[in-house]
């Protein structure tokens, strides 16, 4: 029998179970905390910090912080949403995000968060950073201009024998995602599709696939990201 833990989010009391993260507890209770690198079913990494909440007054990543009895959590505040928007803006200027020509436009989580936070233009200078793409895998294109280094692909895409296909090389602003050349050649269509879908942006594109859904019918064309988690009030 699991132990019940009581927490408050934005001054409302919720009951959850010991061992849940703040993010899981919030979603169980229909409270939306914005996320970007988090993916259901993959152990959270906490790379993007978009899910940052104030726990007893201190900023913490909701996806990696377990709940504890009596936690006071602030989530939907102007300050936190402004900080989340700032993270999105920084990601937009750091990479080369050409939305009009991107296969993932309309289903991209980064773009959807920008829409949600009503980002009209980033406040920061565009870096136009030097990145390259790798089109050598038979089934995939690795488009590093769009990569936000969330590591979802690293943690979720494995060959039959359990070897990881993706890894990050280098550190800091030289960090980049790579795919194992040999394993990439053995990839099935299903695995390639899964890799494309697990990428929150357009950094992993399945060859021959893209622009299949018309504008107006894509995931985030009419519905903001996160709406599926919200309980209508």
């Amino acid at each position: 029998m699991s132990e019940t833990v009581r927490i408050s989010i934005d001054a409302k009391e919720y009951a959850t179970e010991k061992g849940r993260t703040i993010l899981e507890a919030a979603r169980d209770n229909g409270v939306y905390i914005p996320t970007l690198c988090y993916f259901d079913g993959i152990a959270p990494t906490g790379t993007c910090r978009v899910c940052t909440v104030n726990v007893n007054g201190r900023p913490m990543a909701a996806c990696t912080t377990p709940v504890a009895e009596g936690m006071t959590i602030e989530n939907d505040t102007p300050e936190l949403n402004e900080m989340r928007k700032t993270i999105i803006e920084l990601l937009f200027v750091e990479g080369n995000h050409f939305c009009p020509s991107c296969e993932k436009s309309g289903t991209c989580d980064l773009q959807a968060l920008a829409y949600r936070f009503k980002l009209m233009a980033p406040r920061f200078e565009y870096e136009f950073s030097q990145r390259d793409l790798d089109a050598t895998p038979p089934k995939l294109i690795i488009e590093r201009n769009r990569c936000i280094l969330c590591k979802r692909c690293v943690k979720a895409i494995f060959a039959d024998d359990g070897k990881a296909l993706f890894a990050v090389s280098n550190r800091g602003n030289r960090a980049m995602i790579n795919i194992d050349d040999k394993l990439a050649k053995t990839m099935s269509d299903e695995l390639a599709e899964k890799a494309m879908n697990i990428c929150p942006v357009g950094a992993i594109i399945k060859k021959g696939k893209g622009f299949s859904t018309p504008i107006g019918k894509r995931k985030y064309d009419t519905k903001p990201i996160g709406i599926e988690n919200q309980v209508s009030s």
């Binding site: 939305c99 436009s105 829409y115 009503k118 064309d221 009419t222 519905k223």
Partner: peptide
């Protein structure tokens, strides 16, 4: 600023 009108593509 309705949601549908602010798009990047």
């Amino acid at each position: 600023l309705p949601y549908e009108v602010v798009k990047f593509d």
